[in-house]
């Protein structure tokens, strides 16, 4: 019994932990290497600040920020697709940082306007189609050029895309179809593509990884992810659909009630600077930077040459539209996992 007591005391002794004054707690939802680079660059400029960074996906981060509301342990949320950042702003979980956004491109400022300055765009990534060149040539399938090609029976069982109920990437695709073709037509087209889909994955990045390894012939996802896989040596070819395509905007937000708001604002200002954004390609991140003066890597998908739609983040990011579109997707595009 005493022994039990001793152990419990030892456990308690461990529990008292502390927070130093100059610690900045960052959750990073971009690629790990990019996160590491940002931290070391920031610390080099702010030697008094100790940046504590952890990488979590946007969904995980949003769940954590919600659960911690009122007593947050995070100061800044950097990177990751914009929708969850916008939801957090809408729910009052983040605060405006008041950082100057005048150097930013239109889509990044637009995001700040929608969220009242709470979420600011840091990069953009366009939606695209990727195909495994080996598989398609082996099966002598003509590669796709347009969204409409994906409805063709030649791709039967070859297309993989994520389920919009679980993946933000797939929701962007759904919203892009709706904005390109109108809601009713979009559902018809998605259902037609659905006939060729071999699996609706849970995670948005899974289809392109599967296409890279030859587990599926064609995938839909974000182009910068595909570029990264192709750069690693996989036989992946990337297509910007001829009808035009939607895109995501990665964002940065300061958490409401952050313990270290000053350092958090310094981080936001730092993350928006042209010289900082220009460094992303060093670690293989090929998103398009939001600062108009930042250098764009040659590998990055050139947004100027891609037909981008005027993506309406305010409408399609709202919970109402989202709920309605997903309900229609479930009903009309169908059972994501029919038994074959």
């Amino acid at each position: 019994m005493k022994r039990l007591g001793m152990i419990s005391v030892a456990t308690l002794a461990l529990s008292a932990s502390g927070v130093l004054a100059d610690e900045l707690s960052v959750v990073c939802s971009a690629e790990q290497d990019w996160c590491d680079l940002m931290v070391s660059a920031f610390e080099a400029e702010h030697p008094d600040t100790d940046v504590l960074m952890v990488r979590k996906s946007t969904g995980e981060t949003l769940a954590q920020v919600r659960a911690e509301a009122g007593n947050p342990k995070i100061d800044v949320w950097w990177g990751g697709t914009g929708d969850p950042h916008l939801i957090a702003a809408e729910e009052g979980l983040t605060q405006a940082s008041g950082v100057d956004t005048s150097e930013l491109l239109g889509w990044a400022q637009n995001m700040a306007d929608i969220s009242n300055g709470k979420a600011i765009g840091i990069y953009a990534g366009a939606l695209g189609i990727a195909y495994n060149a080996d598989i398609l040539s082996e099966k002598s399938i003509e590669p796709p050029q347009c969204w409409a090609d994906l409805e063709d029976p030649r791709f039967e069982g070859e297309i993989q895309v994520a389920n919009p109920n679980s993946s933000g990437t797939a929701y962007t695709e759904l919203a892009t179809f709706v904005q390109l073709f109108g809601e009713d037509e979009a559902m018809v087209k998605l259902a037609a593509v659905g006939k060729n889909v071999n699996s609706y994955t849970k995670s948005g990045s899974a289809p392109s990884k599967a296409a890279a390894r030859g587990e599926t012939g064609v995938s839909i996802g974000f182009m910068h992810d595909m570029v990264k896989l192709a750069a690693q040596g996989f036989p992946l070819k990337i297509v910007a659909p001829c009808e035009g395509t939607g895109y995501e905007v990665g964002a940065v937000s300061v958490i409401e009630g952050a313990r270290n708001p000053e350092a958090a604002k310094a981080w936001v200002a730092f993350a928006l600077r042209a010289d900082v954004q220009s460094r992303a390609p060093e670690v293989g991140s090929f998103q398009v930077p939001s600062n108009s003066n930042a250098k764009v890597a040659p590998e990055s998908p050139d947004l100027a040459s891609i037909k981008l739609i005027d993506y309406d983040f305010a409408t399609y990011g709202s919970s109402d539209t989202r709920g309605r579109l997903l309900a229609r997707w479930d009903a009309e595009v169908g059972d994501p996992n029919p038994q074959k």
């Binding site: 919600r66 109920n165 609706y200 989202r322 996992n337």
Partner: peptide, 21 residues
């Protein structure tokens, strides 16, 4: 590996962190 075979554990995970929380 689940692909189309949905089970409770993954479904719960995505009801918390998915596009629709």
């Amino acid at each position: 590996l689940g692909s189309g075979y949905s089970v409770l554990s993954t479904e719960i995970f995505f009801s918390i962190v998915g596009a629709v929380a």
